[in-house]
Design a protein around this nucleic acid. Structure first.
Lengths: 212, 212
DNA sequence: ACCTTCTTGGTAGTCACTATCAGTACGGTA
DNA sequence: TACCGTACTGATAGTGACTACCAAGAAGGT
């Protein structure tokens, strides 16, 4: 068994996944999330309800996970999290936003999903929770001293504010139907919170690293 | 029918509500949230499952709503929201935190509920969503110009950061078993995000009011 | 060709939650 | 005190998300 026994099996799996999610998001946007059952999705996709659950553990995942199988929150932090120690959180999030809107083909699909996330309580709640989990991951990646609770607390507050700004930018971008530039919106939101000086010399992560 | 046909009927209703919630939170803390069914709660409380659903629309509400029948997020903003226009958000949140921990009798109960909210994904997600709804309410209360999208955007980002700081303080307070002072933690979190100058002359709401 | 592994479908069940109907106790009124 | 509308409660049946458990067919390497 090779490290990637992928060639055909994994490709078919990914294709089925995209197909199911495509039908799901379309139906959700047409009829509404609550008014659409998983059975409806399965029927539209031409598979059994079991298959839907095998690819997407919960109904919410049909909207929340990316076509790469990642949650939106995870993808936002995919590249930057490893660079957080070396770079400032703010710039990293701006880059992540740029990467998110990079591929033009999936832009409309992403917009539809974001609109569902904002308007549907269950989806919105789970998305916010994913962002919160991301906040914890960022703090862990920052390696905030567990020895100094004060520094860890400040780092947590700063990271939370960063992700809150990111969410604000995401919502506004979706409300604008993706016409604006998402990275620019993230920058605006971050400066609105932290002030202009964040994007100069001292970074946001300075709050946490200053104590070490 | 008096404005308050309360005297006995409403009192009994509130009492039943507290009784059911007391059994629910106790069982959730003992056996775990997911491992406890609504039927278990009903049986422990000596009522029918129907009655539980009549008092608490969802299972999550058994933990999230206050003994006054309000969500934690709602109670946090109960008094300050009306004063947000006149006062700074930061100080208002600090006061709200003080009011939240005011009554010593319900302190242990509140702590148990907060621990459940932090540790149980479904509860955590709904609590975060409630805070997000609160953020929208604050923005509405601030009366941010719909005419000036830039100002509204900055106000939204600032309010989101404030509530994120509040949440960080709440979690830390619960982790400390309520030994620390919640208002002090809120102040710390806010200063960690906005810097020291926030608690001097210019308020957080200055971001929004500056444009009017 | 053989065997393992992955993928899919079917069945039955649990649990959260809703709708509907009926009985009962409370509160104010005549 | 007798009466009536209004709440509160309970039982039944149903929907829908989700989870075992089991069986069949296809993919891939030997």
């Amino acid at each position: 068994m090779a490290d990637q026994h992928s060639t055909l099996r994994a490709r078919r799996r990914a294709q089925t996944q995209r197909m199911i999610q495509g039908h799901a998001v379309r139906l959700f946007a047409e009829r509404g999330y609550d008014a659409t059952t998983v059975n409806d999705v399965a029927e539209a996709a031409g598979v059994s309800p079991m298959t839907v659950y095998r690819h997407f553990p919960t109904k919410e995942d049909l909207v929340l996970v990316d076509q790469r199988g990642e949650l939106v929150a995870e993808r936002i932090a995919a590249s930057p999290v490893e660079q957080l120690l070396a770079r400032r959180i703010g710039d990293a999030l701006v880059d992540a936003a740029a990467a998110l809107t990079g591929d033009d083909d999936g832009r409309a699909f992403l917009l539809t999903r974001l609109r569902l996330m904002v308007s549907t309580p269950a989806l919105r709640a789970r998305h916010l929770d994913n962002q919160y989990a991301l906040q914890q991951a960022i703090i862990d990646a920052l390696g905030a001293d567990t020895a100094d609770p004060e520094a860890a607390f400040r780092a947590e507050a700063a990271a939370g504010a960063c992700l809150s700004a990111l969410h604000t930018a995401l919502v506004r971008w979706a409300q604008d139907d993706g016409r604006g530039e998402l990275p620019g919106l993230v920058t605006k939101a971050l400066t609105a919170v932290f002030g202009q000086e964040v994007f100069g010399g001292e970074g946001v992560s300075g709050e946490a690293t200053a104590s070490r």
